[in-house]
Nucleic acid binder design. Structure first.
Lengths: 239, 239
DNA sequence: CGCCGTGTTGACCAGTTTCAAGATTGGTGG
DNA sequence: CCACCAATCTTGAAACTGGTCAACACGGCG
C-alpha cells in the first residue's frame, strides 16, 4: 500500500534509522546496535483508518514508530478548526521525548501498523545508551527545522506554493518517481488542514495543476507525478 | 529598558533556568550547579540594534543566552518575504543543539547583551553532565510545543486573533501587568512578519484594540495593557 | 439501482493585501 | 531653537486571494 522512501529493499520495519545529517560520532555499526536494542522493547500494533492513536493531553505512556500506512499529528481548536502539524510516513518515529502529556493528537489516515515502545523503557535505554539519546535529539532538531519551513509556508506562501510543496513532500517521502502514482492517499480535508486552506481551494489548485499537466488526477482522485521540475518551480519560494 | 519576566529581582543574567514543566529528576541544587558550570564557559557580547548575530547557513560555532534586549529568529525567502519564527527574551537560550549549520538567522531587535558559549564546550559539558543535556532537551521539547501553537495561529486564526496572541505573549514574557506599558518595543514590520500579516493589517487591528480600550497606544507607539481578559477573549481560539 | 460521502466547480462574498496619501516623531544642520 | 528630512505609523480606497455557499458529479456500497 505504501512504498518506502528511498530505502534499500527492506522488510517491515525498515531496518535503518531515518537518514539524518552527517553525524560522525555515530557509526553504522552503532546504529544497527541501537536498532536492535529498540526492537527488544517494541510491540506491534494495528490501527484502523480514521482511528485515534492518542489525544492531545493524554499522558504520554508510549513512543511509536510507524511501520506502514500514514498518520497525522494535529491540533484542534474548540470551535472545530484543525491544523495538521505533521504527516508521518513508514519508518518515522513519533512522540519520542514528550515531557509528560502528548501535545498533539495522533490519528491514522489509513490503516496503520506501528510499533509502540513504553516511554519508561525508552528513558532507560536513553540512559544506558547515550547514542540512542543522541539520535533522538537529532531527530528533534530535524523536526524543528522542518517546522520552520512549515511556518514560512503558512505565514508567507500562496495557495499554489503550499499545495505544490505538499505534493513534493508526499512524492518525496513515498519515493514516487515521475509518471508514478502516489501510494499514500489522503482526503482533501487533510491536505487543507495541513496547508491552512479550505477543501475548495485545494481542489481548485489541484485542478489547475492538472490543466498544466504537472500532476494527473485519476477518477478515484489518485495523484500521479507528471512533471517534478514544474512542480518544484511552482513551490518556488524554497529559499 | 526591558523588564524581566516574572523573575525574582535578580541581577543580570537571570540566575535561574527558564521555568519548564515538572522535571522531578532535576533538583534546584542541581540546576544551580549546571548554571555555574555554564557560566564558566560563557563570554558576554554586546550587539547593536538591527545587527545580525548569525545568518542561516553559517556554521553553528556558538550557542547563546540572551541577557537583555530582544532578538528575533527568522527565515528569509529569496524574493524578500520573511517569517519570524521566534522572539527571544532575556533569559532565553538559543541556537543550542544545532546540528552543524544555523537553520535560522538571528538579529537584534533592540540593543542586546548576550552570552555566547562555544559549541564545542557545550557538547563537552553535555557529555560530562547528563543533567545539562537533559535540560536542553526539555528546552527543545518546549520549543516544539510552542511551534505547534504558532502553526495553528498562522494556519487557522484570523488577524485579530493573531495580533491578540502576540500582545499576550509580549506582555506575558516581559512581565507587564495591567495598566503597565510594554518595555520591549518592536516595529510593526516585526509584528507582521511574526504573524504572517502585513504592516497595515497589524496597524488596523491595533487601532481597533485601542478603540475597544483593550490596549493603549502612546504617541511613540508604546503599548499599554489595559484589559488582559478582553485581550484573552480576542485571542480566543486557545484550545 | 440508488443512496451517501467525497470531490469538483461556479457565483458571490469577506478578509486581507496593495497602493497611495497623510501624520507623527526623531534626528540633523543651519 | 527651529526648519526640514527620513523613517515609521496610520488611514482610506480599490483590488485580489481565498473563503463561503450551493449545486452537481462521481465512485463505492448496500
Amino acid at each position: 500500500m505504501f512504498t518506502h522512501a528511498n530505502q534499500a529493499p527492506a522488510v517491515f520495519p525498515p531496518l535503518s534509522w531515518p537518514t539524518i545529517g552527517a553525524t560522525p560520532s555515530i557509526t553504522p555499526a552503532r546504529a544497527d546496535e541501537d536498532l536492535k536494542a529498540l526492537a527488544q522493547i517494541g510491540t506491534k500494533v494495528r490501527i484502523g483508518s480514521g482511528k485515534t492513536i492518542f489525544n492531545e493531553g493524554d499522558p504520554a505512556e508510549f513512543a511509536y514508530r510507524l511501520v506502514s500506512g500514514l498518520v497525522r499529528l494535529c491540533k484542534h481548536l474548540s470551535d472545530g478548526r484543525r491544523q495538521i502539524v505533521q504527516f508521518l510516513f513508514p519508518g518515522d518515529f513519533f512522540s519520542f521525548m514528550e515531557l509528560t502529556d502528548h501535545s498533539l493528537t495522533a490519528e491514522a489516515v489509513s490503516d496503520v501498523v506501528l510499533i509502540s515502545y513504553p516511554a519508561r523503557q525508552i528513558a532507560n535505554l536513553g540512559k544506558a545508551k547515550p547514542s540512542v539519546r543522541e539520535r533522538f535529539l537529532t531527530l528533534l532538531s530535524e523536526r524543528l527545522r522542518h517546522m520552520h519551513d512549515h511556518l514560512m509556508m503558512l505565514g508567507r506562501q500562496s495557495a499554489t506554493e503550499r499545495v505544490a510543496s505538499l505534493l513534493l513532500l508526499l512524492f518525496e517521502r513515498t519515493g514516487t518517481d515521475e509518471d508514478e502514482t502516489l501510494g499514500a492517499t489522503m482526503s482533501r480535508q487533510d491536505m487543507a488542514d495541513y496547508l491552512g486552506l479550505t477543501i475548495e481551494t485545494v481542489c481548485r489548485v489541484l485542478s489547475k495543476f492538472k490543466r498544466q499537466r504537472v500532476v494527473g488526477i485519476s477518477s478515484t482522485h489518485q495523484l500521479t507525478l507528471l512533471d517534478r521540475d514544474g512542480l518544484t518551480a511552482l513551490a518556488e519560494a524554497n529559499k
